[in-house]
Design a binder for these strands. Sequence first.
DNA 1: TCCGGGATTTAA
DNA 2: TAAATCCCGGAA
Length: 183
Amino acid sequence: MELLPQSFYNRDTVTVARDLLGKVIARRFGSSTHFYSIVETEAYRSDDPACHAYKGKTSRNRALFGDVGHTYVYICYGIHSCLNIVARDAHVEAGGVLIRAVLQEASGNRIEGPGRIGKLLQVTPNHNFIDVTQHDSELFALDAPYIDDTRVSITPRIGISKATDVLWRFVVHAEGVSDIELI
DNA sequence: TCCGGGATTTAA
DNA sequence: TAAATCCCGGAA
């Protein structure tokens, strides 16, 4: 499998969130590497009140302003480390895609919830600024076939109180399951 | 130094 | 549906 190039992330954050579905996150643990395909994402842009970067750069969110294709990890509710990949085009100052659910390739298990993913991948705020376009990084992302629209639900983002109208959450479901059952 | 927000989780 | 949870950024 091929690494996703930096140009993949240098597009509108919402587009990248959509296109990241089905792509593979690889986590290197010493000599072994584990692979997870992404099945749920949300987009956050600095022109969006729900984004951490909405009020400008701070020491917590500064990774969102950094190079695209790098990680942004933040702590939520004091305990959960949540993983994002920085992605934006030139229209915004900052932006990233939150990884909300993955499929563990080895077992086929679906892991839902950004906090659980942080735990599973053992990421911490020390894992900010990791370049996921580099094969030797602890975390990197690989290309995979595009997931057809018929298998994707598009919904408002969850867990937030601002900008709940935009449809910036993308969820992959199995074939043959209707959107209505899932939303 | 201190206060409170917070892109969650879990249990009932 | 509601309560627990607690670190850390940002302001004072």
